[in-house]
Design a protein around this nucleic acid. Structure first.
Length: 333
DNA sequence: AACGGTCTCAACCGCGGATGG
DNA sequence: CCCATCCGCGGTTGAGACCGT
């Protein structure tokens, strides 16, 4: 027993739209909108089409400000990076490319970009099945390196976290994912904290980690160049509690984000509220602390803590529960 | 010019989620 | 809470365009 069709296919026209149909649809929507109901629209507009077909035609072709034609290098980079970060979420990717539709981007990916990626993969010095299909699932035979090596990503790749886009985008994040090592050979575009909420990773069903933050690999350098805080970061443990606003500023400046399943709270607030004198976020960020320990309070799946310096993490020497290795889910489904 | 293979992309399909009665 | 309906999405299809021989 299958699902009931959305309309009687014997009574609706199918296939390519004629200019007359386009004109009817455009005129109707410009006058009345879709009225919140695509299903009844064709009847009202005098079209012998399925409502879904009308919706698709409008969204992908007739809607104002649709951009047709070749994609720019910049757009390529954005698509590459977002695909690497979130996979085939075409509607989300389209939201970052004004004038492009999800269908356009999907077609473009399937016909052009994927080949571009594969051809650059095959010419790469790294050779493995994972390189040929770099976005496969973590059960890939090449389990330790299931992601895209930097060599497959054009230099124009978009990295929303890196202020200078010419910086190496592959060094944008320190993390492990689902137990697989993430290193500086792997592209890991970050989700900008200023991005719309729908990009939040916090409710993803794909992950089961407890807590964590996304960290920018450049954060140490960045921090060193932005001494906007007066407390000592020379290596001595500081007992000075930062103001919550400072923490938030620091997080923002260092591109720390908290987008993980299980921990729904406010990292800055929790750090501030639960500060217990045993850690210093600045030390973690600067890598100067020897055993910075941030306890976010709570227990079980709601807790978050760290006992590792960023510098160690940057060198991929140790793991940290603050940087839960399952905190970056969108790579896989 | 004719043919066959490949590519492109608009359109379709069916599913999951949201919503409202 | 259940069910029906609708919307939006991602995967797939296939007609026509394009290209190489």
């Amino acid at each position: 027993m299958g699902r009931a069709p959305c309309c009687d296919k014997t009574k609706v026209k199918r296939g390519p739209w004629s200019p007359e149909e386009d004109s009817k649809l455009r005129d109707y929507i410009e006058k009345y909108g879709n009225g919140g109901n695509w299903i009844s629209l064709p009847l009202k507009a005098g079209l012998k089409r399925c409502g879904k077909s009308c919706r698709l035609r409008w969204l992908n072709y007739l809607r104002p400000n649709i951009k047709h034609g070749d994609f720019s290098e910049e757009e390529d980079g954005i698509i590459f990076s977002l695909f690497a970060a979130i996979g085939s979420r075409w509607s989300i990717i389209a939201a970052h490319l004004p004038g492009r539709t999800d269908n356009d981007i999907k077609n473009y990916w399937n016909t052009k970009l994927r080949k571009k990626l594969m051809s650059s993969s095959s010419s790469s010095s790294h050779s493995s099945s994972a390189m040929v299909s770099p976005f496969l699932n973590p059960n890939s035979q090449d389990g330790k390196r299931p992601f895209t090596p930097s060599t497959t990503i054009p230099s124009s790749s978009y990295n929303p976290y890196v202020e200078n886009p010419n910086q190496n985008p592959t060094k944008s994040l320190i993390s492990n994912i689902n137990g697989y090592e993430a290193d500086d050979q792997q592209i890991f575009p970050l989700i900008n904290p200023n991005y719309p909420q729908y990009l939040s990773l916090s409710n993803s069903n794909n992950i089961s980690g407890t807590s964590g933050v996304l960290l920018n690999y450049n954060m140490c350098d960045h921090y060193n160049n932005h001494h906007s805080f007066s407390t000592d970061v020379s290596g001595n443990r500081s007992e000075i509690v930062m103001k919550q606003e400072e923490i938030m500023m620091m997080m923002r400046d260092n591109h720390i984000d908290q987008r993980t399943k299980g921990y729904e709270g406010n990292f800055a607030q929790e750090y501030y509220s639960n500060y217990n004198g045993h850690g210093d976020l600045k030390q973690m960020i600067s890598g100067t602390g020897t055993n910075s320990n941030i306890n976010m309070g709570g227990s079980g799946s709601d807790s978050a803590s760290s006992s590792s310096s960023i510098s160690n993490l940057a060198a991929n020497k140790s793991s940290s529960s603050l940087l839960q290795h399952k905190c970056l889910p969108y790579f896989y489904s």
